[in-house]
Every structure is written in C-alpha cells, then in structure tokens.
Design a protein around this nucleic acid. Structure first.
Lengths: 331, 331
DNA sequence: TTGAAAGCGTTACCAC
DNA sequence: GTGGTAACGCTTTCAA
C-alpha cells in the first residue's frame, strides 16, 4: 500500500533508536535537544506521518465503533434536522460519527469502496440514497451493518415516510379545497423522494397534470418554475415537492399579482422551520425522528446486539395554513 | 484498558486456530459450516468485537487523517452552514471528518480528554468555543493542531467576525434611521458571539440600554422577549443578536399592533436563509466562508505542511430591508 | 538520555 | 479446510 516512511526510517536517518523517535513524536519524554532536532529534521525530510492504527493499537485504549453517514451534498434543512439527533444519539452510546458528504453517484461508489476496503467503519448509514443488492451483500459479508434513512431498501432496516401517499395527500387537499387544475413543481430527478411525490401527485391530479422540474431546491428555482407554470398552463393549484420551492413560487405569484389562496392555492412539503411564519400550507415530515430512529437502530445493532430493528414508516401530516383555502367540513 | 476478548480467546473457546477465526470474521474464505458455526457461537458468547486499530494495521492501507470537529449542540442554521463547506473541503483532501456534538462545558472537556488520550484525531476544529492555554499546550505537545471557527484564541489560527463591531453596527444603523431608545434581545450568555454583540450594542446604545436574554435561540423565545421589552420600557428600536429571535420579535409586534418599521425598527444578525423573504434587516455574517476557511487551514496544516495560516477576520455586512426605515443619504 | 526488545490484535502467507 | 507464524508500525518497559 502507499504507506510512507515508518519510525524505522526516521530512526535510521537520524541515527537514533526507534524509541527515541517515538519519544519525540509524543513530545513528552526527556530527549536531548540536539537529538530531538535531528529527529524532527529527519521527519520533515521524509514527510513522516505516524500510522494512526499502529499508534492506537500499541497504546491500547478503547475500541469505539464508528459509523459512517453518507448524506447527499446537503443543501437543505432536511439533512441538518437528521444530523442533529443522530449525532446526539450516537455520541451517547460512544459511537463516532464520520460525516461523508456525497456529491453524486460516482462519489458514492468511491466512498463505499473505500469504506469497505479500508474497513474504516463498523456501521453504515445511508441517507436518501440506495445501494444495489451486490453492494449490500459486500457489506454484509464484511460484517458492516447498514441502516437507511429516507429510502426503503430490501433487507435493510430503514425509516422513511410514504412519499407517494404524501404527494397524493397534497394534491387531494388542494382538490378538496376547490382547485381543479393542478401543476407540480419538483426538484432534481435524482432525488427518490421527489419522484415518489410526483407519482402520488399524478395519482390524484391525473397523469396529464403538468410537471415543472427545478435543477436545485431553492426559492430562486421555485420562482422560475412558477413563471413557467403560469405561462404554459392555466392552473389554480400548485403542489411543490419542497417548502423552499413553494416559497419561491409564492414570491412569483405575488409579483405577478396572483392572489393566494383565492386565485391559486399553493402547498409545500417538509414543514421546515419558519414555514409557519410564512403561512405556508405544507405536508409535514418528521425529520428529527429520522435521525433519532437511525441512531437508535445503530446502537441496537452495534452495541446492544439485539439484531436489526424492523423498518418503520413514519406518518405525514398535512398542516393547513394561509396558502390554501379552508377545507369543507364534510369532504 | 477495558479491551475485550481477542481472536485468541475466540480461537481457544471454539477449538480452532486464530486464522480460522479471522476467516470467519471476514466472511470471505472457505470455512466448513460446522466450524464457522462454532466460531460464531464463541464470538457471541464472549461478545467479541474486533479491534479496529489492529485490523487496519494488519490490513495495511492508507492512513487518512481525521479531524474532530467540536460544535456546540447545534440548533441553528449557523452550524449547518459551517459544516457543509467544511465537509466538502476536507473530503476533497481525503481527510475524515468526525462530528462531535458538544452539549456543555463538561461535555467539551470530556471529549477533549478522550481525543487526547485515545489519540483519535490528527487535527481539531473548535467551533464557537474556546480552550484554555493548558489545553492548547496539551494538544500542541501531542502534535495535534487546532483551528478555531467563530472564536478567536491566542496562538491558534482562527476565522471569525468582529462581533463587537457587529453589535455596534446594528445599533448604530437603527439610530441613524431614527430610533432613539434601543433595546437588545440576546441569547444564552454561554455564547461568546452573543456577549460580544451585546458589548457592541452598548457601545452605541449606551450602557443603560435594556437587555433581554432568551434561554434559547428560536422565534418562540424572541416573542416572549419582545413582550417583556414592550412591558418594561418604551423603545423604538430592537436589536436582536440572531435572526430567529428577530422573527419572533416581529411576530409579537404584529400581534400587539405595533407597526414595523414605523413605530419600532427591528434588526437581526446572521442573514440566514429566507430572511430576505421575511424582509428582515440584518447584519450578514459569511457563515459559509467559515467552514471553507477551516477546511483550507486544516488541509494546509495537515497535508501540505506549510504551517499555520494567519487568523482572519471576515467582514460583516448590513443588509437593509423592510424592518428598518431608509437611512439618510448623508449621515 | 538512549536503545533493545516485547507486546498490541489483526491479517495473510504457507504449509499441512 | 485449517493451523502456524510472520508481519503491520507504534508504544512502552527495562537496562544500560
């Protein structure tokens, strides 16, 4: 492997014993200033980096498990909400949390390969992303349990919501409150959750209801999408797969003078912080619970050894606010 | 140390050689089903957990550095904004990021002790928190460089903003736009940044200007504080040390019928996402740059070995919006 | 102050 | 299939 110089190399170059090199590295012991200088010099010359594993092994000390959490290049509130309870739960059980910010599919595979090859974790958390059965088996064989968040995977314990039902719920609510021509504003197709919400949307709004896709999840993109929606079709209800998109949509509607919810109703998804202040009707997703569940599942598997917990589907809740009209009492 | 059973113990109990145990652990090699079962049983009986360090050492493989990032129990957008570029920057340099969610002072010391004793990181990132000189020297002696974010520490490279100047800037702006009686709504005293903003506030508003402290940083708390402000003093301008607090303040003012910015002006701090949509005048803090700077500093120290970068103070920007009146052209 | 040598708990190579 | 037995790179006595 591409391992660099060892203390033996340093010792030889500095004309001292390896014990002395070790002393210098650890700063502590009494070493003559001259020899110390020589050793430091040798280390610098050879660009020496102590091997972590060897140090820990020799030094003894506890053997904390590590969980690698793979999250997609996070841009939204969602991942923060997951990370917070996750980090707390794991810390409480003395499990280290290594954060892996995944940029794209290739990146994911690279990281997965690395984790496997270097055995650098005892547990794996997949957030909003899947893995094929071969991958799953590789990890299984290596004895590294996997837990998934926001993504259902066969034979892997996971928490998620029913995004299809969620998309449907949003569209249905708009129809119940009087909208008849719906459009969907969605995000990157790579996001599985978005695709499911789209499916659910179509199930309620009809398969020919128009869909507008944003390249990213931000108010700016939502705004652009809203402009498209208005120019291309006459709608009286817009379902957004995410709150931020909905915020942008509302901005545009206000700018062009469309009255919400009178002329057009708008609904978001997530119920992230501040949405109540903006008065956005939305489908709430229990994001905190995702992280908490994952931490608990991992603790159960890694520490308590009580086996894999069953997968769980958390409930979605429609939060009616100012961007939709009142629903009739008897639907 | 409290190390558990080793493969030798397992081998003995299962009446096999350690090589066989190793094979079973790694799932790969061909092992007779009967012996495999025996080994698995023995492992279960003894609650065996392979030693990570030993595995990595024996298996060879690259020696990635690890950075432990200590963040206070994160509740706001701030830490997310820091983490994002941080994780990206470190990943690009093949540095692992271990997230340590710090709850309080005692927790911080516990974690610091652990990191030191177990040598579990090659670099340390302190976010929004300080350490004493003894601590700093301990890490220095152990050869673990420290980098600080949002907190200036002697002899430690750090990025931060001038929060005193920020507090002053906010108060001064309100005075320039006509407010004469200011109050401050601040957060937990434990937060150094808040204390500095408070100092700056007093520098401009006068040392007798009233201060209202919230136990947490949320709109709800801001709301409560606003009620207090109004009941205890007649003010025409409220400076908040954080945007979320300001949002709550605005809510309360609206509820009791005070007109913003006509009757009372309000200003926040951070300029977190969506503040433009809420029209909050605020002091923007370049949060993303904090994380990016930290990543670069760490890479410089750990990988490139070009020594410690100089500390940096990033600029604050006042973003005038709808919760303040127009500033006169010639102040 | 310094060096030799014995571990630390695995993996992996070789015989059997 | 399975069991010895060297590494792996470092820390740490123990003498010198």
């Amino acid at each position: 492997m591409g391992s660099g110089p060892t203390i033996y190399d340093i010792a030889k170059r500095a004309q001292v014993g390896i014990a002395t090199v070790s002393r210098v590295i650890n700063g502590s012991a009494r070493v003559a200033e001259s020899t110390r200088a020589a050793v430091v010099q040798a280390m610098a010359d050879l660009d020496f980096r102590p091997n972590r594993a060897a140090r820990r092994l020799a030094a003894g000390g506890p053997n904390r498990p590590r969980v690698a959490a793979l999250l997609p290049f996070f841009s939204t509130n969602f991942y923060f909400s997951v990370c917070k309870p996750l980090s707390q739960g794991l810390a409480a059980a003395d499990i280290d949390l290594v954060l892996c910010n995944i940029q794209d599919r290739a990146d994911k595979n690279r990281q997965l390969d690395r984790l496997l090859k270097e055995r650098s974790c005892e547990g794996l958390l997949l957030c909003s992303m899947g893995v094929g059965p071969e991958r799953r088996d590789e990890f299984h064989r290596a004895g590294i349990p996997i837990v998934a968040v926001d993504y259902a995977l066969p034979e892997i314990p996971s928490v998620q919501v029913d995004n299809i039902a969620g998309g449907k719920l949003a569209a249905e609510y708009l129809r119940r409150t009087g909208s008849t021509k719906l459009a969907l504003v969605t995000g990157p197709a790579a996001a599985h959750a978005f695709r499911d919400r789209e499916i659910g949307f179509h199930a309620s709004a009809g398969s020919d209801a128009p869909v507008f896709r944003c390249a990213a999840v931000s108010p700016e993109e939502g705004r652009i999408a809203a402009a498209q929606v208005l120019s291309e079709s006459a709608v009286d209800g817009i379902v957004c797969v995410n709150d931020l998109l909905a915020v942008g949509v509302l901005d545009h509607l206000r700018e062009v003078g469309r009255v919400v919810p009178k002329d057009i109703q708008v609904i978001g998804f997530d119920d992230q912080p501040l949405m109540d202040h903006l008065g956005l009707t939305t489908v709430r997703q229990p994001m905190d619970d995702f992280g908490a569940w994952a931490a608990e599942a991992l603790v159960q598997i890694l520490i308590e050894r009580t086996g894999q917990p069953p997968s769980e589907t958390l409930p979605l809740t429609l939060i009616p606010r100012a961007t939709t009209r009142r629903a009739p009492e008897h639907p």
